[in-house]
Design a protein around this nucleic acid. Structure first.
Length: 517
RNA sequence: GGGCCCGUAGUUCAGUGGUUAGAACGAGCCGCUCAUAACGGUUAUGUCGCAGGUUCGAAUCCUGCCGGGCCUACCA
């Protein structure tokens, strides 16, 4: 036991019926920044991602591809693994719902729910459209002039279908859920999602059908293997499977309850209503917080398969560099809002914030040091008010960023960091170290030290967002690997440390001119 | 139909009762020259969606309307 505080963050597990796109990269990126920040801040971190591999759609997609479901999911799951390396994500675990340990966890949870009296065998009946492969509520159907009952977006014919099904007594959980939301105001974010969920629960809950007999690709219900568990009960359980459930002696069990589930806004209900109800029913603590991220559009248009305008995060990173894309995604849009992915805006951020403000600040400071101080960190000397002012801003940044990270306000954290970068650029101009080089070398040294030290602090905080680039920047300041965690935030650069030759980290992006000939 | 959120400079947004409504990007002008033609200073632009109301005072609260988005359960 380390005694350190734990921090457990998860992505949604990704459904293997889709190839990775910007939405997957975005949610995982947010988790990655959380995980990296918390690791640097001294926490014992576990960051989980993975793939959701069961369900009728997968079974059919596999058949269409001429593969067994297992072979099919092996293949698609791998494409999600490949995204991790390409985006420099740092998960500690990767779970697949087809793993044995997951079957064991799901079945153990099921047994608990049965023992608690929250699951019963009933009949699932409703209007079913064979075309849509979906059930419709009575109110969603209409009897046409031809006497046939229809439903759905295109009005396909429906028929009355009944099948045996196990039900979870969700209807009895409304009050306990509302009480839980009330006592845990941070449980659902952002606020608008919290309101939606609460109003949904207040509207009354119905029992939830949690098994299917119409297909077989899933986790069998214990003692009644004709039934397959409802995919969401199966999928949600992954978060505790990882921690060893039901074996609470498992060392990873120390991470439960999760500190943060980051999810897309489309699956907020499953995480904020069903999931805490299942867990409370089974006597397991619910997670502490669920944050719903928004959707990306591209150049003002919805992303859709028919338009073929999906954003491939790996291709974008190949063109602009990985870290600029990571920065853009989290800086451009307040986390939780929908965002529009505009090429022009990305280039604007890359050039204005990264190349001009931050990259050039480092470059101008380091090149003066290289030319005037024998390439070594100069002595600190005596500080004047202007020096203390800039250093104070840089010092204060850790507390500000930490608070923003706690709220998943990544855009605000970055804005605060960049304010100090702007301060530093103003300071360079005001102090004009290139002029001091001729008149007052000691003062010049102090100015350069203050700048290098401010850049060090800023860059320590940039690490979670742009780990590769921040690493290069810290290399240039000769900050050793063991001095890059936040425990070293309040240490200072030591005079006399030899620096490597300065090198640009964020080149400006220049739009390639139309090919000549 | 019911519910939630939003509508503020060319653009993205901040500002949730109190002096002449702010920032960034973009644009113009000036300065600097260490630096990735980067940096700094400065100027300009808004009937704060519309109309009423509450208040000594409203972008900020209330009502209505207009416009946009989302939720309204069992395909993930």
């Amino acid at each position: 036991m380390s005694g350190r505080s734990t921090f457990y963050v998860t992505t949604p597990i990704y459904y293997v019926n889709d190839v990775p796109h910007i939405g997957h990269a975005y949610a995982t990126l947010a988790c990655d920044v959380m995980a990296r920040f918390k690791r640097l801040d001294g926490y014992d971190v576990h960051f989980l991602t993975g793939t959701d591999e069961h369900g009728q759609k997968v079974e059919k997609a596999a058949a269409a591809a001429g593969l067994t479901p297992q072979a099919f999911t092996d293949k698609v799951s791998q494409s999600f693994r490949d995204l991790l390396g390409a985006m420099n994500f740092s998960p500690d675990g990767f779970i697949r719902t087809t793993e044995k340990r997951h079957y064991a966890a799901c079945q153990a949870l099921w047994d608990k729910l049965v023992a608690a009296g929250d699951i019963y065998l009933g009949k699932y009946a409703g209007w079913y459209s064979v075309r849509d492969e979906a059930f419709y509520a009575d109110s969603e159907t209409e009897v046409g002039t031809d006497g046939k009952r229809r439903a759905g977006p295109v009005g396909n014919e429906v028929e009355w279908v009944e099948e045996p099904s196990y039900f979870f007594k969700l209807s009895t959980w409304g009050d306990r859920l509302l009480e839980f939301y009330d006592k845990n105001p941070r449980f659902i974010a952002p606020e608008t999602r919290r309101n939606e969920v609460i109003s949904f629960v207040k509207g009354g809950l119905q029992d939830l059908s949690v098994s299917r007999t119409s297909f077989s690709w899933g986790v069998p219900v214990p003692g009644d293997p004709k039934h397959i568990m409802y995919v969401w009960l199966d999928a949600l359980t992954n978060y505790i499977t990882e921690c060893g459930y039901p074996d609470i002696k498992n060392p990873l069990w120390r991470f439960w309850p999760a500190d943060l589930h980051i999810v897309g806004k489309d699956i907020i209900r499953f995480h904020c209503v069903f999931w805490p109800a299942f867990l409370m029913a089974a006597g397991v603590a619910p997670p502490q917080r669920v944050f719903a991220s928004g959707w990306w559009t591209t150049e003002g248009q919805k992303i859709s398969k028919s338009l073929g305008n999906a954003i491939d995060p790996i291709a974008v990173a190949a063109e602009f560099g990985l870290d600029p894309v990571r920065y853009f995604l989290l800086r451009e849009v307040p986390f939780g809002n929908d965002g529009d992915f505009q090429r022009r805006a990305l280039i604007g951020r890359l050039n204005a914030d990264l190349a001009n403000a931050y990259g050039n600040l480092c470059q101008r400071v380091l090149s003066i040091v290289a030319k005037n101080c024998e390439g070594k960190i100069p002595p600190k000397g005596t500080l004047i008010d202007a020096d203390a002012m800039l250093l104070g801003r840089a010092k204060g940044l850790l507390a500000i960023v930490r608070a923003d990270i706690e709220e998943q306000a990544f855009h605000r954290a970055l804005a605060s960091i960049w304010e100090v970068i702007a301060d530093a650029n103003r300071y360079v101009d005001a102090q004009a170290p290139w002029a001091l080089a001729k008149t007052d070398p000691a003062r010049r040294d102090t100015v350069l030290w203050v700048l290098a030290e401010s850049i060090r602090r800023v860059t320590l905080l940039v690490q979670p967002f742009m780990p590769g680039s921040a690493g290069k920047m810290l290399d240039q300041l000769a900050v050793p690997a063991e001095s890059r965690a936040f425990t070293a935030f309040d240490s200072e650069l030591a005079a006399g440390t030899l620096l490597p030759k300065p090198q640009g980290v964020f080149p400006r992006f220049v739009e390639p001119t139309a090919a000549a000939g």
